[in-house]
Design a protein around this nucleic acid. Structure first.
Lengths: 345, 345
DNA sequence: GGCATGAATGTGACCGGTCACACAAGGCGC
DNA sequence: GCGCCTTGTGTGACCGGTCACATTCATGCC
């Protein structure tokens, strides 16, 4: 028990060593579980550790050994549901493995700014997880020096830069494909798409899945409307679509966009799902409680985060093989916002 | 330029020193901006730094000097809008000050689990920011050893444990007071309240503000309904309230609860704001786009996060005085979900 | 000229661990 | 009895910085 009143420097292995009457190296052996320590000695050391309340200094460990039991997560945003959930998953897994979690936010996609953030993350030591769902993230992933252990959380393996880096992903293409088919199967002639900002200059996995489903059904392929991330972007896009009476089904790149679209349709006096069906993406927690509740695809973001950490952990400990990893299958959640198109005019 | 093909150990100050033909200590002086270094020497050293791509090793710095330019944020949740925004504010300010940001999630409010998390955070070195809006956070704040630099983000100073620790807060009581008054001024006889889990066993600041406004107006004081954090909790609470025809105004502890309440009212065929007015708390990004759009109180969470970091920064650098700090004034945002009560039956 | 003073620089120890190696004691084969 | 391997333990250097102190040299002042 710490009974001395004044604050004192925490005990080091040398303090423990003198207390137990051994050398500091023996203490080191005990805390590292080295086999060749006599049982009686080990017990004496453990007793001393307990008594002095010794805790191994993480900083010294990192400096001396090189390995730092830390992950830094690089992301462009911590407030969006998907990103935050991935982060939570990472943290969960990291905690279980007693790793420290650091975060770095990519405020702009501008190249030098991204490079600076990557540098900062590298300085922190340990591994890196980059959420590469958007241009900033993709840029960051590309900017990570080759010798740094890193795992990317990517939209789809095809867009992953570097190619040989380990990554995790959910099958967004398949998910988009599934919702689109759901809408088509309800009788809609085609499905319009409000896109999230693409992670690359080319089209996103979600866009691809949507387009593919249309093509398979022989449905016309309208130009995707560019949204933003948030509801405001969806609202803008929704206003345009609401003016077009031929639009009867809208797929949105995420649930926030869908919310904006829903609002825009309401403002234009078009009912959902009576006149227009709307589907989202992600199954954010509020989507089930909207009126109308939102048809969407559930993605296992926390699982994705856990998998990302597991992969990085493997890389850092040089144990697990490095392999791209698809995590979980997206699940279509049908709610009130989708239905049959209005009777033919 | 790094032209050698193979990965090499990053340059240390001794490498720079030999390259510049000075001692390592002189290099140290240059990077720390020590005044007594001859101009010509300084230039030579800077040139060597540039050429070798030297970057100061954060781990070694932390070990040698004790100070670590790092903050760990302890929070019970990273996905809720308010928490995530505070985190974002902290990160923003920390980045500007080139501090590293770590996170630790308090998964349960159970005492030993919380203590373990605090320990882990302490091990990481640097300062601590604890988001103490809920029992887990409050417990964590209380469990932080006295000699650790820590700043609490608290609901209200009165509930802050330890008392002498620096903290930041927004005036939740005042905010609740303002919305409640708004509802009363519309003509409602009283305002019901769906509470978020309280940070202490006693009532929260929001509850207090609400009650105070009722009291001042001489309105009846109904028992607050206990909600949860998310829309599901609001939904449950809303179902109960929807059954009571005398309920014409409902204030919710946050926007997610309000969403659930909105949904429940809709399911019970009560229109908003025609039959019942609903107000939320926080002004989450989606609240403006709900149908009806939600009247709420905007709180400056990112500002709160920035202020928390600034305070901690002051503590760590021993420069600024330690003072409790109220950040920003909450702002009432009136939208569609509140209106006059239905004509008297 | 002698000496205190300050600027510019170098030296050695230290932070708290790990790593490579040395070394003593005990068991075994021959 | 000698060599050799294994087990248990200790010593010194090192990771990459900082800190306290020593040293050198030029300067100012009496």
């Amino acid at each position: 028990m710490n009974v001395t009143g004044h604050t004192r420097r925490p005990a080091s292995i040398r303090d423990v060593a003198t207390a137990a009457g051994v050398s500091y190296q023996t203490v080191s052996r005990v805390i590292n579980g080295h086999p060749s320590v006599k049982q009686s000695t080990r017990e004496r050391v453990l007793a001393a550790i307990d008594e002095l309340g010794f805790r191994r200094n993480a900083t010294a460990l990192a400096l001396a050994s090189g390995r730092s039991r830390a992950v830094t997560v690089l992301t462009s945003n911590t407030t969006h549901y998907g990103y935050a959930s991935i982060l939570q998953g990472i943290e969960e897994a990291a905690r279980a493995a007693s790793y420290a979690v650091g975060i770095g936010v990519l405020e702009s996609a501008e190249e030098t700014a991204v490079a600076a953030e990557v540098q900062r993350a590298a300085d922190a030591g340990g591994g890196l997880i980059v959420i590469a769902y958007d241009p900033a993230g993709v840029g960051a992933l590309a900017a990570v020096p080759a010798d740094l252990p890193v795992v990317g959380v990517v939209e789809t393996p095809a867009t992953a830069p570097g190619g040989d880096r380990p990554w995790v992903w959910t099958d967004d293409r398949e998910a988009a494909h599934a919702v689109t088919r759901h809408l088509l199967s309800l009788g809609h002639e085609t499905v319009h798409y409000v896109a999230i900002p693409s992670s690359t200059r080319r089209t996103s996995a979600r866009t691809t899945g949507w387009r593919q489903a249309l093509r398979e059904a022989g449905a016309p392929e309208p130009r995707p409307v560019q949204g933003n991330w948030g509801p405001a972007g969806g609202h803008r896009a929704g206003r345009k679509l609401a003016e077009d009476p031929s639009v009867t089904a809208i797929l949105c790149g995420n649930d926030d966009l869908a919310l904006g679209v829903l609002r825009a349709l309401h403002e234009n006096g078009r009912s959902v799902p009576g006149d227009v069906s709307v589907a989202g993406f992600d199954d954010a927690p509020h989507s089930a409680y909207l009126t109308p509740s939102l048809t969407t695809v559930r993605l296992d973001f926390t699982g994705l985060g856990r998998a990302a950490f597991a992969l990085l952990h493997g890389v850092l400990e040089q144990s697990a093989p490095i392999a791209p990893h698809r995590v979980s299958v997206p699940e279509l959640v049908v709610r009130e916002s989708t239905g049959a198109p209005p009777a033919h005019t």
